Amino acid sequence: MAVPFVGSIVAFLVALLVGGLAIYISARVVADVDDYSHAVITALLGAIAWALTSWIPLIGLVIALIAWVWVIKWRYPGGWVDAAIIGAVAWVS
């Protein structure tokens, strides 16, 4: 019974580290911030924001995207445009 749970935890951690790496790379280019741990925490907070909002019918995905970009905006210097660029580059990565 514990094996699927452990697999889920490992998959979550790998996704978190990869997502953090993508945010790190894009934030380093766009915002000149060189801190991988900051990017991983941003990825975690963004995932929480996404999970809390994406379930809303009809507009949930739009709200989730705005919430995710807002987390990036909150955690990095710059405005909405810089946060959207960081998010877009991270997503493409």
Rank of each mutant, 00 (worst) to 15 (best):
A2I: 08
A2G: 15
A2S: 12
V3D: 10
V3P: 00
F5M: 11
F5C: 12
F5H: 12
V6M: 08
V6S: 07
G7K: 10
G7S: 06
S8Y: 12
I9Y: 05
I9E: 02
I9H: 03
F12T: 06
V18E: 08
V18T: 02
V18G: 04
G20V: 14
A22Q: 07
A22W: 08
I23G: 04
I23C: 09
Y24C: 00
Y24P: 00
I25R: 01
I25E: 01
A27Q: 00
R28T: 04
V30H: 00
A31K: 02
A31T: 02
A31C: 10
D32Y: 09
D32I: 02
V33K: 04
V33F: 02
D35P: 11
D35Y: 05
H38E: 05
H38G: 01
H38K: 13
V40Q: 09
T42Y: 02
A43K: 04
A43H: 05
L45M: 14
L45C: 10
G46A: 11
G46I: 07
A47N: 15
W50C: 07
A51V: 15
A51K: 15
L52E: 09
S54M: 14
W55G: 08
W55L: 07
P57Y: 12
I59M: 12
I59L: 13
L61K: 13
V62W: 10
V62Q: 07
V62F: 15
L65M: 12
L65N: 05
I66W: 10
I66H: 13
I66Q: 11
A67W: 02
W68N: 12
W70K: 11
V71I: 13
V71Y: 04
I72M: 09
K73N: 11
W74M: 12
Y76S: 10
Y76Q: 11
P77W: 01
P77E: 05
G78N: 06
G79A: 01
G79W: 00
V81L: 08
I86H: 04
W91G: 05
